[in-house]
Write a protein that binds this DNA or RNA. Structure first.
Lengths: 318, 318
DNA sequence: ATCGTCCCATGCCTCCAAGGCATGGGGGCC
DNA sequence: GGCCCCCATGCCTTGGAGGCATGGGACGAT
């Protein structure tokens, strides 16, 4: 016996006719249906219906069989349903945060690292600024984030890149004709750096200014790239921001690299030590792949990156 | 999806291995089983098990599916069970009575007449003496009986045979050396015939004696064959009984036919006109088959039998 | 590092049963 | 008596279940 037999029997019982059941309910012809029902009766060992020119009538056996046949099919449907639902529920979530603009570079890498597990987990992506990402990590809203190394948060970091700072300026600024900007050009211009909140950027910027020996004062500090772009446009000033900001420029703002050795700001994968997610553990075990991975379509920032993680294949992918 | 898939899946889940399940539990090879499970997963739309060199482990989906799969198969088993039971309970009964000793000859015939209906009805067999069978017919405890034509009961009869009377005697009686017994041998012997209760036998016997012209007095009358046999042994007398009594003889009693034309006693199929059983109606419609039927292993009493019933095929069977 | 073993997956082939079409039997209706 | 409807049977086609051969991958032993 197969489910096909149960389905055929139920259809015939409900239509009262082999011919009508075959025509309206089933994908089979009346003679085939006749045989299938006979096969069923032979296997059951009881006559389930009587036949006449008026169609069929269930015998008491047939009536008893029908009830259980329906229940059997209902169980099969339930089996499929709960399996599908369990597949949905069983998927773990993995929350990844990126600084706005970093997704383009790092999301593909992160997905590659996860690859086979992707069908068992549900990845959620968040874009935010580094301090907010750090906060979310601490609070458990994120499992992992690509952000700045900030000792103010009780997080673990693995540096994955060093990003140079670049200069943002209005698109009609006099300095746009320069291919690179010497820091002395900042003198006499409104200068925008990181705010007290963007502590890592601020510290790197202040260190750079100090090391330049120039009397450059920071006129404005901003929390994030969007604020920097607004001030650049509204004050016609110059801002010093991480290189990935170029992924986010409006038409009225352009960027130029710094002349000479630009100061760099670390990009790290941050996570909380209290996070026991097995997916995080797996993710971290493949950090070398994260760093070595390159998608052909995306520009990979130049400069050496610190090798992190265990003995995974450095830089190579099959 | 078919029940086959559920059975395969359950077997694999319980064995923890496709190979073991195929070998121990199922009538299929491991590669075929692998495909069937894959087909199932494709149709369900969830991965039900993970595979490794260690065999398989159920996923949460697989575990959920397993429970319902088992329930589905349990419902199928229940469907078959209740259908079979309903078929049993729904079977009509048909009660047939035979005079003790007649079963050997007439039961096979009766079953043949019923043939196809046998799977839909439940036949009960009763052995008794003719007057008791007649009483049971009148009271509806029997549907049909093979018995004597007795006008004392309001029954319908269709004669199916004429049975000669035979002589019963002790196994060491002087007359055992005779091949046939002339009635004059009854003179000087204790003579046993039918009792007032066994009216038909009594009437036939008295008519025979009357027609013999001999002064034979009936010393004892008996109700049935068993009583006759007892008296034959205890009184060393002779009893005149229907031929079928030879089927019932103990070692101490033997039988001999009567010399000359033996008187006969009719055997009839009796029934009550008030019995509306469709099976009785069918049975009666096949009376010609009843009479014409002969099983090779059983001795068929000689003598012409009256043809009864409708236009069925006389004496022939396909 | 290499080899052997175990388990599952895939390629390819066979064959059987599901299914279709033609047709007939039986009953009911006009 | 003829026609229609419904179910059953004969015969043929074909798709898929199943078997066998074989390979990939992981693991354990050497």
């Amino acid at each position: 016996m197969e489910l096909r037999h149960l389905r055929y029997f139920i259809a015939v019982a409900e239509e009262g006719s082999l011919t009508l059941a075959a025509e309206k309910r089933l994908r089979t012809a009346q003679p085939s249906l006749s045989r299938q029902i006979r096969d069923l009766e032979r296997e059951v060992g009881a006559e389930l219906m009587t036949r006449s020119v008026h169609g069929i009538e269930l015998t008491p056996s047939g009536k008893a069989f029908l009830d259980h046949a329906r229940l059997a099919l209902a169980q099969v449907d339930a089996a499929v349903e709960v399996a599908r639902r369990a597949a949905q529920l069983g998927k773990k979530t993995f929350a990844i945060g990126f600084q706005s603009g970093h997704e383009m570079s790092w999301l593909p890498r992160a997905m590659h690292v996860l690859r086979d597990e992707l069908k068992n987990i549900q990845v959620t992506i968040t874009s935010d600024y580094s301090p907010d990402l750090a906060e979310a990590l601490v609070r458990g809203r994120l499992d992992v984030a690509f952000l700045r190394v900030d000792p103010a948060f009780d997080l673990s970091y693995e540096v994955v890149d060093h990003e140079p700072l670049i200069v943002l300026m209005p698109s009609n600024h006099r300095l746009t004709r320069r291919k690179a900007i010497h820091p002395r050009e900042f003198l006499g211009e409104i200068f925008i750096g990181g705010s007290k909140k963007a502590t890592v950027l601020r510290a790197v910027t202040e260190d750079y200014i100090r090391r330049s020996g120039l009397a450059i004062k920071m006129d404005h500090g901003v929390d994030n790239i969007a604020m920097a772009e607004s001030l650049v446009v509204s004050t016609r000033g110059l801002a010093l921001m991480p290189a990935y900001a170029k992924n986010l420029l409006p038409p009225s703002v352009v960027s130029r690299p710094l002349e000479g050795e630009a100061p760099t700001i670390d990009l790290a994968v941050g996570y909380s030590k209290t996070n026991t997610s097995p997916i995080l553990k797996l993710f971290l075990s493949r950090m070398d792949e994260l760093i070595g991975f390159a998608t052909p379509r995306l520009h990979v920032p130049s400069g050496t990156s610190k090798r992190a993680g265990t003995k995974g294949r450095a830089g190579a992918r099959s």
